[in-house]
Design a protein around this nucleic acid. Structure first.
Lengths: 229, 229
DNA sequence: TCATCCAATTTTGTTGACAATATACTGCCC
DNA sequence: GGGCAGTATATTGTCAACAAAATTGGATGA
């Protein structure tokens, strides 16, 4: 009951790409899995043309890796990839917060406050904070990205960074979200944005992402990646 | 005599994409030009398959725009696109400078100093400063992006932002570069990076990009875009 | 027993033809 | 004369077959 309105509609390539991404990010297709074109073609009941297009699309978004003349596999993200990802995320989301604060109007504070209210309810419902870094958390960052008014930032985040972050979470299950702490940080960020304080908003957002990375890195350090060449 | 080593080598799609990008960014194919698949196919003596792949690739990098079931055209960048571009560029390049300063070693100062020396020669050779924002300027930013150690930032800059910036310059010919001023700013940025001063490096780089945008915007304001719906 | 070479098979890259959709044109009606 | 419907054309989306490359397996030799 989410985006189920599309089914066998529109362009086949798009349909395959969406379905594949869904299956990859849900953990159904583990990182490293070979993605043969013929297999996918008959799996989605479509020719190899659209499959090729879809694979290229997903390769651009960074969740599959294609080796020319060899094939595509679900991408395996290492620690270095994760770090690079969070560095870029920090830069872009901080910029988004800065811009959002730059053209904040009277309604801005209200919509952010309402959103945070919902999140507060969810956090108190699941006190262990196992959910954050979930859709709720993502909503907040998404809203700010949209409020930035910069379509490129929005595209990078939705089309590349967030999918890759989801892919990261596939490997390292149940990442212990920092529910309460994150919510508190969100509050301060929202406040700065509503006040139109660009510099503080950017600074707090950067710090927020950094904290998220620190938490994740601690877990990554606990489970050293076993990658054979 | 730059990257001429590739000619009819490797994957056809890649070859077409490179050639097309070259022709678009050189101004040979003006923004808005229709890019019919059959025309391109026989132009590059290849089938429509690789052409399709190449067009999708260039659409991802933002220099062609594809409308499903209608076709591809050379993208037309408006003022809003340009602003968004520079905002993202500021965020990413500032982050690159910050990271580069973060892990600067003894050799860093030397390589940057040498690069700046070359640029100084070029500037004094062309005092009107008509060249900067040319390959020389780009080299500096490129080197820093590489020094950041972050492959995602490097990819975004080389694969998307810089091509789009080049596309911008196609429309607005002879953008008056800020040769001397830019070189001075580069010097200070390099110094901060060599010293390992992340915060200052990021700040200066952001300011530098901002100044570049201000200069460009002044020119854009002088020539209002005539765009009919 | 292990390494190396070679052939068989699988898989990707490319091609040309077919189907579906959008665009352009012509004639018609108001 | 202007707007609109219907048709004709051209272009994109998709398909199935062909060619080239890589991977796999086994046989041969040291």
């Amino acid at each position: 009951m989410s985006t189920k309105l599309d089914e066998s509609r529109g362009v086949a390539a798009e349909r395959v790409a969406l379905a594949l991404q869904e299956e990859i990010l849900s953990g159904n297709l583990a990182p490293g899995t070979r993605l043969g074109e013929v297999a996918l073609a008959e799996r989605y009941d479509v020719s190899r043309g659209p499959v090729r297009s879809a694979l290229n699309q997903l390769a651009e978004s960074g969740i599959v890796s294609i080796v020319p003349n060899s094939g595509a596999r679900v991408r395996e993200l290492g620690r270095d990839d994760a770090r690079a990802l969070y560095e870029v995320r920090a830069a872009l989301e901080a910029e988004a917060a800065r811009l959002a604060a730059g053209h904040a109007d009277a309604a801005t504070g209200d919509v952010l406050g309402q959103l945070l209210g919902q999140h507060a309810d969810e956090v108190s419902a699941h006190p262990q904070g196992a959910y954050l870094q979930g859709p709720g958390d993502r909503d907040f960052h998404m809203v700010i990205a949209r409020m930035s008014g910069n379509p490129i930032i929005l595209r990078y985040l939705t089309r590349e960074l967030y999918p890759q972050l989801s892919l990261l979470r596939v490997k390292h299950r149940n990442v212990t979200g920092r529910g309460k702490a994150a919510l508190l940080e969100h509050r301060r960020i929202a406040e700065a944005i509503a006040c139109g304080d660009s510099e503080v908003a950017a600074l707090l957002m950067r710090r927020h992402i950094r904290a998220s990375w620190d938490a994740l890195e601690a877990q990554l350090a606990a489970t050293p990646e076993e990658q054979q060449s």
